[in-house]
Design a protein around this nucleic acid. Structure first.
Lengths: 138, 138
DNA sequence: ATTACTGCAAAGCATTTGCAGACTG
DNA sequence: CAGTCTGCAAATGCTTTGCAGTAAT
């Protein structure tokens, strides 16, 4: 699978593998792990090595094209296209499903820090609990 | 180093190694990684194997005695005593120093989720930016 | 004495790195 | 053509696991 339009991001050399990774991310409905991206590329009858996926993702992240996230202490990283909207997720403790959150508590909030000269650049927030399929109380 | 008072938590068999780990955590001023805990124990002239540290920490976490956290996408886990107060941290992008935050935006906030039946149990929040020593604009 | 815990070594797993050949601009 | 990227293999770093001997109750 490959984009017919040529809206390739500036400053990045175009290769088959990079096109494949970008295409997978463009069609993804949720953030994907490097391994998932790898299998998706191969489902599309292209071939790519996992280490290449990591290298491509690293580049995309550095260029601001992709966002790298980690959920649930310790799991592997997941990647999604940077659509330039601020976003947080809820994660189900049981099935690890990732659920989008539509608002953000940091909009109207000023943190009080031990270091009062801390220059805040951004934040991560993650909510955990049970999704409707896994809640033991239902 | 060892606690003279016998306030050992119930339901946990007492061993030298577990006492050492608990003592290190009690005296720690910030969350520590497993490796840091290991070196601290050895600084106190006790001896412990890293894998034992992990096993002890796993037990303590399961018993609710210790909190396990991860900061800055992908780094190693850090552990601190559960002092039963709700806490978040700011992390310096450059030196990775961890700075305590005294308030929490989630106190007065209701998340709007894609899954409106999500049963929220808790949350993680992490702020990132530059601490006063690392801020390039100072 | 019985059961659980620890030292130690080795495996596991996601991620990174080195290198030579292949491809891009 | 020069420089970059990729396939591939091997290394890395944190964490987990298996096993046999040791310690705790």
């Amino acid at each position: 699978m490959k984009e017919s339009q040529d809206n390739w991001p500036a400053g990045i050399k175009k290769t088959k593998q990079r096109e494949s990774v970008l295409s997978v991310l463009e069609h993804a409905k949720k953030p994907l792990s490097a391994m998932e991206i790898c299998s998706e590329v191969e489902k599309n009858d292209d071939s790519i090595w996992l280490s290449t996926v990591y290298r491509v993702l690293e580049l995309f992240v550095k260029k601001g094209l992709v966002i790298k996230t980690n959920v649930m202490n310790n799991d592997m990283s997941i990647y999604e296209l940077n659509r330039f909207k601020h976003k947080h997720y809820a994660v189900c403790i049981k099935c690890h499903k990732i659920i989008e959150m539509y608002n953000c508590p940091m909009d109207k909030f000023t943190p009080k820090l031990e270091d009062d000269d801390f220059h805040i650049i951004g934040h991560n927030l993650e909510i955990y609990g049970f999704c409707k399929d896994c809640d033991p109380k239902r």
